[in-house]
Simulated scan of single mutants.
Amino acid sequence: MSGLDPAIAARLKRTADGLVAAVVQQRGTGEVLMMAWMDDEALHRTLTTRRGTYYSRSRRQLWLKGETSGHVQRVHEVRLDCDGDTVLVVVDQVDGACHTGDRTCFDADPLLAAEV
């Protein structure tokens, strides 16, 4: 059972797996760092500890960002979108956010470059 506030839980629109998308953004710059999934417990832990906590679909367990790499996320804000199906997590990211070591998960493969 999750410790998530029932009023918050009632506002979430989850996938069939019980997950909600989490977009992670760098505080101050607005840079999008990563996208991850949260279940109710991950969201509860993120809100109460101010450390980015997510749900790994492949491992089927919670993971605390930076627990093994040291690339932690200090959470400053969490916002729910108007549809209730995505949360925005505003963080101070220590080192790379991507599991590859890149600053963001969107560095490696641009599909359309900005026009000059």
Rank of each mutant, 00 (worst) to 15 (best):
E31T: 15
Y55D: 11
D92P: 01
T29R: 07
G84H: 06
V32T: 15
S58L: 08
Y54D: 06
A36F: 04
G66V: 12
T68W: 11
E77F: 01
Q25P: 09
M34L: 14
T29E: 10
R60C: 12
L64V: 14
R27F: 14
V24W: 04
R27N: 15
E77K: 09
S58W: 09
T46I: 07
S56P: 09
E31K: 14
K65S: 09
A36G: 07
H71T: 13
R51E: 06
T86C: 15
V32I: 15
M35C: 14
G30H: 12
G70M: 11
A22D: 00
V91H: 08
T49N: 03
V89D: 05
M38H: 09
T48H: 09
L80F: 00
R79I: 01
Q93C: 03
D83R: 04
E31F: 01
V94H: 01
Q73N: 14
D95T: 13
G28Q: 10
L33K: 03
V78N: 05
V90E: 06
K65P: 11
V78C: 04
S69Y: 12
E77S: 03
V24Q: 05
G66I: 10
D81R: 03
W63T: 10
A97D: 02
G96H: 07
R74Q: 14
L33G: 01
V24T: 15
D85Y: 03
G66A: 13
G96A: 10
G96W: 08
G66R: 09
C98Y: 02
R50I: 00
T53A: 12
T68G: 11
H99Y: 08
V32M: 13
D40K: 02
R74L: 13
D92W: 00
K65M: 10
H99E: 02
G30Q: 10
R57G: 13
L33C: 07
T68R: 14
D40T: 04
R74N: 14
W37A: 05
L33Y: 04
Q93D: 07
T53K: 07
G96N: 06
M35E: 12
V94I: 05
M34R: 09
A22W: 01
R50E: 00
L43C: 03
H99C: 04
V75L: 08
S69E: 11
E77Q: 12
L62P: 13
S58N: 11
